[in-house]
Computed example of a mutant assay.
Amino acid sequence: MSDIEIRPARFESPEVQKVVAEALADLSQRYGGSGDDTPVTMSDFDPPDGAFFVAVRDGTLVGSGGWRRHGSDAELKRMFTTPAARGLGVARRMLATIEESARVAGCGRMILETGYLQPEAIALYESAGYRRIADFGHYAGEDGVRSYARDL
């Protein structure tokens, strides 16, 4: 795992947008449509109200994720690990980095939306101490939505 570096990145950078497009394509294969219609702007992850990170292995982006402020909470968005890097612990390290960033920024809780067709994501979040909460955000009330939170 030491050959994978987690580092801050600008959400609007072309290399980040390439991995985000891969994440959305993965979601599209699972759910159809665009993969995620949640409104996200390029500035959502700008400090102090957010942050975005990438995982890099051998000069290639193999993961991404960030948080944006949602009231007093931080909302986890665009969490993704490329197929080639799955099973290496990238997502767990990314999640810990994102949580620490949000905690330092004064957020008391991390919230997220995922879906029933992402069992690996659900398993990660539950093993990291996340618990189901009432659905919120863009997909509140939709079948298959799974919303979670964890105190930071």
Rank of each mutant, 00 (worst) to 15 (best):
E100M: 06
L76E: 01
S2G: 11
R93V: 14
A25H: 08
K18G: 07
S2L: 12
F52V: 03
R103D: 00
D143I: 01
R10N: 06
A123F: 15
E12M: 03
A55T: 08
H138I: 00
P14L: 08
L27S: 09
G87Q: 07
C107I: 15
G137P: 06
M1Y: 12
G106Y: 13
Q118I: 05
W67E: 01
R150Y: 01
L61G: 01
F80H: 11
R10S: 07
P14S: 12
F80A: 00
A55N: 12
G129K: 06
R132Q: 15
D73K: 07
S127C: 10
Q118K: 11
K77D: 01
A134K: 15
Y116E: 15
L95F: 11
W67Q: 08
G106Q: 13
T38I: 03
R69A: 13
M1F: 10
D58R: 07
R30K: 14
D36I: 10
R30Y: 04
E126C: 15
D143M: 05
T81E: 04
E75G: 01
G33H: 00
G71P: 08
D26W: 11
T82H: 03
Y116V: 15
G129A: 09
S34D: 11
A74V: 10
I6N: 02
E75F: 01
D49G: 15
G71S: 13
L112I: 06
G115R: 05
G65C: 02
Q17G: 09
H70R: 10
V62K: 14
A123P: 12
L124Q: 09
G137K: 08
D135S: 15
P119W: 12
I111H: 02
H138Q: 01
P14F: 14
L117W: 06
P14K: 03
T81Q: 12
E12R: 07
T38V: 02
G32Y: 00
S34H: 04
M110A: 05
Y130V: 07
L152S: 07
I122G: 02
G35Y: 02
G137V: 02
I4T: 14
A21C: 06
F80K: 05
M79L: 13
A25V: 09
R86E: 09
A9N: 09
R103W: 01
Q17H: 12
R68C: 00
S147K: 11
R57Q: 15
R10Y: 03
Y130F: 13
T82L: 06
E75Q: 10
T97W: 04
A105E: 10
R86Q: 13
S147W: 04
L61R: 09
G115L: 01
V90L: 07
Y130R: 09
D151H: 15
A105W: 07
